[in-house]
Simulated assay, not measured.
Amino acid sequence: MVICEAKDYKDLSRKAANIISAQVIMKPDAVLGLATGSSPEGMYAQLVEWYNKGDVDFSRIRTVNLDEYRGLAKENEQSYDYFMHKHFFDKVNIDVNNTNLPNGLAEDPEEECRRYDALIESLGGVDLQLLGMGHNGHIGFNEPGDFFDKGTHCVDLQPSTIEANKRFFESEDDVPKQAYTMGIGTIMKAKKILVIVSGADKAEILKKALYGPVTPKVPASILQMHPDVTVIADKAALSAGE
């Protein structure tokens, strides 16, 4: 595991964008596992800037997103599909037919999970998986629990996750209570993993994830077992030390 300290959020975003763009340049048809939320917004903005300068070409890239709220249509402004189009897909030359997210409106959750796992397998797996980290150590929507879920699954969101996400909705009642997420097993099959963490409020959980015991109580701790993980965190997020 490589831990890279960034000076601030802007530096973090640039360093993360460097790794993503390098992957695209090395393998123009790479499969990128993408994430949403506030952490990667700056990274996507940097990639868009470099695309506009002609420095990076996304025309052959395939993508699979980590997660999607259950019950939200793609057109809903709070869906992760909408987020990806707003911040990235609609601003670069990616083929929308090569972008993939779980279907939040799928009628049969179990069938949707099987479909998504089969899709990822059909693409040959993920070359580079981008992750953020929740305040409780979740990656994707793999919440703390008694075991590590292997494949894509539909999860009940914990109160702390709903609390963290309510700022994006008109009220807490509007926050979906379930989401589809890649499982820990799927994430761990990625050839490379890039984790970005920002802010002092993440310092304690980042310390547990990087240096504590590997336990499903801290889902991100499983990343200690992956052979190729890069963590980019700002000084604030690394302030708890080892």
Score class of each variant (00 low, 15 high):
1 M>K: 06
3 I>Q: 05
3 I>T: 10
4 C>H: 13
5 E>I: 01
8 D>F: 02
10 K>T: 07
16 A>G: 15
17 A>M: 07
21 S>R: 11
22 A>D: 15
25 I>Q: 05
25 I>W: 01
26 M>P: 04
29 D>F: 13
31 V>E: 02
32 L>I: 04
34 L>S: 00
37 G>L: 08
38 S>N: 15
38 S>Q: 10
42 G>F: 03
44 Y>I: 07
44 Y>D: 09
49 E>T: 13
49 E>D: 10
49 E>S: 14
52 N>Y: 08
53 K>H: 05
55 D>Y: 15
58 F>T: 07
61 I>M: 05
68 E>V: 03
74 K>D: 03
75 E>L: 15
77 E>W: 00
77 E>N: 05
83 F>R: 00
86 K>G: 08
87 H>I: 08
88 F>W: 14
88 F>R: 05
90 D>G: 01
91 K>G: 10
91 K>D: 11
95 D>F: 06
97 N>W: 01
99 T>H: 06
99 T>K: 09
102 P>L: 08
103 N>P: 03
104 G>M: 04
107 E>F: 14
109 P>H: 10
112 E>C: 13
113 C>I: 06
117 D>Q: 07
119 L>A: 08
124 G>D: 06
126 V>F: 12
127 D>G: 07
130 L>Y: 15
134 G>P: 02
135 H>K: 11
136 N>M: 12
137 G>D: 08
137 G>Q: 01
137 G>K: 01
138 H>R: 02
138 H>W: 01
140 G>R: 03
141 F>K: 02
142 N>H: 01
143 E>F: 00
148 F>A: 01
148 F>N: 00
149 D>F: 03
149 D>C: 09
152 T>D: 07
152 T>M: 05
153 H>R: 15
154 C>Y: 04
154 C>R: 02
154 C>M: 12
155 V>T: 08
156 D>S: 12
157 L>S: 07
158 Q>Y: 14
158 Q>K: 13
163 E>F: 09
168 F>D: 11
169 F>P: 04
170 E>D: 12
171 S>W: 03
172 E>W: 02
176 P>T: 01
178 Q>M: 07
180 Y>F: 06
182 M>H: 09
182 M>C: 08
183 G>N: 04
184 I>C: 02
184 I>G: 00
186 T>E: 14
187 I>D: 03
189 K>I: 06
191 K>S: 07
193 I>M: 03
193 I>R: 00
194 L>F: 10
196 I>E: 11
197 V>Y: 11
199 G>F: 07
204 E>C: 09
206 L>P: 09
206 L>A: 12
209 A>P: 05
213 P>R: 11
218 V>G: 13
219 P>A: 05
219 P>T: 11
219 P>C: 13
220 A>G: 09
220 A>W: 01
224 Q>G: 08
227 P>V: 13
228 D>E: 15
229 V>W: 13
230 T>P: 05
230 T>Q: 14
230 T>D: 03
230 T>A: 09
234 D>F: 06
235 K>H: 08
240 A>D: 14
240 A>T: 14
